[in-house]
Design a binder for these strands. Structure first.
Lengths: 330, 330
DNA sequence: ATAAAGACCGCAAACGTTTGCGACATGCTT
DNA sequence: AAGCATGTCGCAAACGTTTGCGGTCTTTAT
């Protein structure tokens, strides 16, 4: 079964290729009669325009690139789902790549996107990405690039992220309000800007409003590490009354440790997390959390992308607002 | 910043376009000296081949299409991650679409893939998809299409799935082995072949090996519905000693209900689930489950895709083996 | 009757590659 | 000296579209 092209239709109908093309796009130059004939035959022959040819000719790929460290992640997958949804509505497709936190793969993937001449790029930095020159090439090519979640610290780039300092503040406030004395605070990889922001705001808030609270700060590399840290500190301090987890991954580890130690919450220890809400509601009572929604972030990123595409050259750094969701654990 | 093309390089070097093209592909016709010069300049000018032009010329898009009902799902996202990983290694990109279980969107997405002339298609049917003619068009175009997870019942198609009847058997066996008397069995949407297979194998096994076990069978539409059903049956029967959940979604709902009723497991009730293992290990003790790995299924789908692309015209229906993972809940 | 104005359509170039074929020069064999 | 193989390269067509421009024919106004 050979593909049907404009040429084939034109030959059957005895018309020129350009007429067929125009007829299918409802161009005013073409008479209604021929339009009807063309459309009919096109349908009969299952004509589907060749995207490559159109891209080559028009230089509009109608494809967005999207890179995340990993797709299997509660935050990213909702972000992706959100962007995919909007893209589809606007007639764009998504090309999704995962970097696996490997700078080499990251570069390769970016190259792929450039070669496919994506119309725009959504990008989340890997945790150990230091050189962002590969990202900057998109700017040289006038391809808008929107950084999300883990964004570079350089100025002059389009970024959307959760209001991470607010996240830190709100979390700290919630804990302070409950008059907690000793809180084990678990953060993620400390060279990510997201960690820095959340951590410094968190600490700062305690410093200002409740300097007497004892803060034990740790950095976990993953779930297992978080569990290890919780075990460790509960063996040493028996005074810990609160655990704060800056991400789902860390929360999962912490909860495992708590259940293994047969601790009740909020009886024996209170828990607060930062999450999109899915994981916290799996537990009983549900975990209190500061909400960061990948879905909302996706919407924001998309509108920013559209703004760029429609000619706005303003560089924007936007954040989506966050709120505290009270569960039963704090 | 204008894009650099073969033409531009050729003009600078005073060579023909074809020579540039051949030099960059290490064609034997070109002398080492010119190759060096060309490669050097190409690098200096940040030459990146235009994928659309290549596609148009060679008819190889090097892009796979992948459609799932939703990306935000423990099973699918690991499947996607798996396929993405392999694709990248083989120099392919992935175009990911979600149908949101809407046949209309499903058709639109498939059209998009065809227009982009994907080299192959990975597809999972939506729960209320009945007409698969839109999928079959790929076959007419000689584009391999691999169905996974929720596959059509028609013959003569490439399919990979979990060994669903085995899944049902193993689950039933595990319950029988523990001599359970009354089991509340929660399945999903009953017009999906995956549900049918698991359910009939499950029932059949009980029928053969333990006809005295009382089976209460229900179909839940989602997590909430599963929770509702558990509450409902526990108010009526106080003899239920086991709950079986055919998916993560259902397990989550069931667990919520159990925790709300303050039931201990496996003390008050035993639990068995079908899952990739992530959700079951969040609870304590961890839930026993029959393992179905999206990751493995992805690998299998990919090898089948590669087989199709390398000319094999054998239609294959393959399944990945499953095993019982004993947790503490049964 | 003639000119002007639409209405309708075709020509051909262009987008950036790949590739079969032929051209030319050089060195080697008889 | 003629013939032949070999090493390097360029020509030009093709992939499937889009689009500026120009052409023809019919209609309408003068």
């Amino acid at each position: 079964m050979t593909n049907t092209t404009l040429k084939k239709i034109s030959e059957v109908l005895g018309l020129s290729i350009s007429t067929i093309s125009r007829a299918l796009k409802n161009h005013p130059d073409i008479s209604e009669k021929t339009k009807q004939k063309v459309i009919e035959l096109a349908k009969a022959l299952d004509y589907e325009p060749n995207a490559s040819a159109i891209q080559l000719r028009t230089k509009h790929s109608k494809i967005f690139g999207l890179m995340v460290p990993t797709i299997s992640n509660f935050f990213y997958d909702s972000f992706i789902a959100s962007v995919e949804e909007e893209s589809r509505k606007q007639g764009y497709s998504l090309m999704i790549l995962q970097s696996s936190d490997d700078p080499e793969i990251e570069r390769e993937n970016l190259k792929l996107c450039r070669q496919n001449r994506v119309s725009g790029m959504f990008a989340c930095l890997g945790s150990n990405t230091t050189d962002i020159s590969s990202y900057l090439r998109f700017k040289e090519l006038d391809t808008p690039i929107i950084f999300f979640d883990k964004v570079p610290e350089e100025e002059g780039l389009n970024k959307v992220s959760m209001a991470d300092t607010r996240v830190g503040e709100i979390a700290a406030d919630a804990i302070i309000l409950q008059k907690k004395k000793t809180v084990l605070s678990l953060f993620g990889n400390s060279n990510m800007s997201i960690t820095k922001k959340r951590e410094s705001a968190f600490k700062e808030t305690f410093h200002l409003r409740s300097p007497s609270t004892q803060l034990i700060v740790e950095h976990a590399t993953d779930s297992q590490d978080a569990a290890r840290l919780v075990h460790l500190h509960f063996e040493q301090h028996n005074s810990i009354d609160t655990i704060f987890c800056m991400s789902d991954e860390i929360l999962i580890g912490a909860m495992k440790a708590i259940q293994e130690m047969n601790l009740n919450f909020p009886g024996d220890v209170s828990i607060l997390s930062i999450s999109n809400g899915f994981i916290p509601t799996l537990y009983h009572p549900s975990i209190s959390y500061v909400e960061t929604s990948g879905y909302q972030l996706g919407k924001l990123a998309f509108t920013q992308m559209m703004a760029c595409l429609s000619g706005s050259d303003a560089i924007m750094e936007m954040t989506v607002e966050v709120k505290y969701i009270k569960g039963g654990s704090l």
